[in-house]
Amino acid sequence: NQASVVANQLIPIQTALTLVMMRSEVVTPVGIPAEDIPRLVSMQVNRAVPLGTTLMPDMVKGYA
């Protein structure tokens, strides 16, 4: 099973992502693949992302 990127904390809207905000976890449905974590650093979320939420491509500006 492929690991996805999951929020390690509440990430407020417009926040630039850092490594400490994300973790990898095998979840359903599958979100952004964990191997993309380095690419996500400094990208902004376009909505508030609660703790434990799987990051989906449409939540990160410039990802999809």
Rank of each mutant, 00 (worst) to 15 (best):
L40A: 00
L17M: 12
Y63S: 04
P50K: 11
P50A: 10
M43E: 04
T15F: 05
L10H: 15
Q44K: 13
G62M: 07
P33E: 04
N8A: 13
A64L: 14
L40E: 00
V6Y: 02
E35W: 11
G62W: 08
L40V: 04
V26N: 11
A7I: 04
T28I: 13
P12F: 05
Q2P: 15
A48Y: 12
R39I: 12
S4W: 03
T18M: 09
P57F: 07
A64G: 12
V20R: 14
L17D: 02
V20H: 14
E35H: 13
M21W: 03
T28W: 14
V26W: 09
P38F: 13
N46F: 09
V6W: 03
V45E: 01
Q9E: 14
A16W: 10
T54D: 01
I13W: 15
R23F: 04
Q14V: 06
Y63D: 03
K61F: 12
A16N: 09
Q9P: 01
Q9S: 09
R39P: 02
E35T: 12
Q14D: 15
Q9H: 09
S24C: 07
R23I: 07
V49Y: 03
A48R: 11
V26R: 09
V30G: 11
P29L: 05
Q2N: 13
G62T: 05
V20W: 13
K61D: 15
K61M: 15
V27T: 12
V30Q: 14
S24W: 10
M43T: 04
R47F: 08
V27D: 01
K61S: 13
L17Y: 02
P12C: 05
N8M: 07
V30C: 07
V5A: 10
V5D: 02
L17V: 03
A3W: 12
M56S: 07
I32S: 00
M56P: 01
Q9Y: 07
P38A: 10
V41W: 00
L55H: 01
I11E: 00
A16Q: 13
A48M: 14
S4I: 02
V20C: 07
G62Y: 09
A34N: 05
T53Q: 10
M56I: 07
I32P: 00
S42N: 15
P38I: 10
P57I: 06
A16F: 13
I11M: 03
L19W: 11
V30I: 12
E35R: 11
P38Q: 10
L55W: 02
I37C: 04
K61W: 12
M59A: 06
T15R: 07
G62F: 08
P50D: 15
V41F: 05
T18C: 05
A16Y: 12
A7N: 01
M59C: 05
V27R: 15
D36P: 00
A48P: 12
Q9C: 08
L55I: 15
E35Q: 15
T53M: 11
I13V: 15
A34W: 07
M43F: 10
G52S: 05
P33V: 07
Y63I: 05
N1P: 15
Q14Y: 14
V5L: 02
S4T: 02
I32K: 01
D58V: 08
V26G: 04
Y63Q: 03
L40N: 01
I37G: 03
L40Q: 00
A48F: 11
D58P: 06
I32T: 02
L17C: 04
V49M: 04
R23T: 08
R47A: 10
V20I: 10
M22Y: 02
L10D: 14
V41N: 03
L10V: 10
V20D: 15
P12K: 07
M43V: 04
M22F: 08
P50T: 09
P33H: 08
L40P: 00
N8P: 00
M56Y: 08
R23S: 08
G52Y: 04
T15K: 07
R23E: 04
V6T: 05
R47V: 15
G31N: 03
